[in-house]
Design a protein around this nucleic acid. Structure first.
Lengths: 155, 155
DNA sequence: ACAATATAGTTTCACTTGCAACTATTATCA
DNA sequence: TGATAATAGTTGCAAGTGAAACTATATTGT
């Protein structure tokens, strides 16, 4: 009934800590949870909320559906993040003329202030994460992520 | 009240799709959710369960605490995965002599069969994800992940 | 024009998750 | 030895999640 002894030697094995999906997941979880903790403590902001603010900072007036396209979040997540951001007065909405289902979303002045404050902090954190990499390695990392993201999208 | 017009041009901006934490999260989520779906459909297995099985396949007899150390899962997650795996008869436990709190965990014959079936499938998937990379790039990826994981762990 | 479809966004539900509290057991040390 | 602290593992709870159902509005085809 038990599995032990030399049988194992010849059988397929998987070394979890060398397994790409596992490594990606661990790395991503570490990075995301640190950021999440930081945003939460400092701004009472979740990562989905931050993502919505980030795209609205760059593209004021997107609708929720357009935010969804640009963030790899699903529409439920966006809807909830938008709801919370409105409650906390970081974003506001205006009618889309010609379509009463959708609304344009904008950072409020308050929201924009938060955005402007976070952006350099986010960059700092990114730099810390990649601090042990050389410039060449950072370039490699970018290229590899591009390729992997493209590949993963079409699998 | 609104944020628009040329003000934006001079203000800090963050391009989400170039932001490392975001990119890592998106890539990891795509990869993990595909795998999760596959494991679920084919083996009624969650990723935490699979991780537990993967380490027990390689290190039969670990205790739950030891599984925790080796998987970057927390003990609650391990406890629940172990519970489900016992219910589905994929693992079993034996007493640890000299400590009645802990138990050694082993794959059952059934569990081992699942393990042996999954391992090559997992490898295949990994290869598919990296199929667009050259051998050199795969090497780079490994090295970069090593460095980033080491760095992230100590931040 | 109007029935059938599609889309924007919200809500419900079942499930997962992590934190903290908890039980049981073992280790420490005065 | 007996009190205190540490450890293994489980459970309760509050919050987050995605899938599917739902409302409201817009589009399409006849």
């Amino acid at each position: 009934m038990r599995v032990e002894g030399k049988r194992l030697a010849r059988e397929p094995q998987l070394v979890l800590e060398h397994f790409l999906p596992y490594r990606l997941s661990v790395l991503s979880n570490i990075v995301s949870s640190r950021i999440a903790k930081f945003y939460e403590e400092r701004f009472q902001l979740t990562i989905p909320e931050w993502r919505v603010m980030a795209v609205l900072g760059r593209f004021p007036g997107l609708t929720a559906a357009e935010v969804t396209e640009r963030t790899a979040m699903d529409k439920v997540q966006v809807s909830r993040a938008v709801g919370r951001l409105q409650k906390t007065r970081r974003i506001e909405q205006r009618a889309v003329e010609g379509d009463r289902r959708a609304r344009h979303l904008f950072l409020t002045e308050t929201g924009h202030g938060v955005y402007v404050e976070i952006v350099p902090l986010a960059r700092d954190y990114e730099h810390k994460v990649t601090a042990t990499l050389s410039a060449a390695e950072r370039g490699q990392l970018d290229r590899l992520l591009d390729k992997l993201l493209a590949a993963a999208g079409t699998l």
